[in-house]
């Protein structure tokens, strides 16, 4: 099955309890399936950046095999609120 922005969003919401997800399909800029995602989840609280990214990589392990490029930004709900105000 082809990896889509919707599939990525659904997985992040169901498996990481993400409260906000933005998925940008950047494939047109590159040569193959590429995505840029912003994930806001309370599960990131108290976790350093590397661990947050590992959580996301694990959640999307199957999809990443077919993805050419993947950019991610991981925020806690608190960090997300702060960023929105800026």
């Amino acid at each position: 099955m082809a990896v889509t922005a919707d599939l990525i969003r659904e997985k992040l919401i169901s498996e990481l309890a993400a409260v906000h997800v933005e998925v940008e399909d950047t494939s047109p800029n590159r040569c193959a399936a590429s995505f840029k995602v912003l994930i806001v989840s309370p599960q990131f609280e108290g976790k350093p950046l590397l661990q947050r990214h590992r959580l996301v990589n694990t959640c999307l392990a199957n999809e990443l095999k077919e993805i050419h490029a993947f950019e991610q930004k991981t925020l806690t709900p608190e960090q997300w609120e702060k960023q929105k105000q800026q």
Partner: peptide, 20 residues
């Protein structure tokens, strides 16, 4: 245990990829 390239290491320890 990281699915993408590039990968950066400091002092033998994995730091992360480009985003990090």
């Amino acid at each position: 245990n990281w699915p993408t390239i590039p990968q950066v290491f400091f002092n033998g320890e994995f730091v992360g990829g480009c985003d990090i």
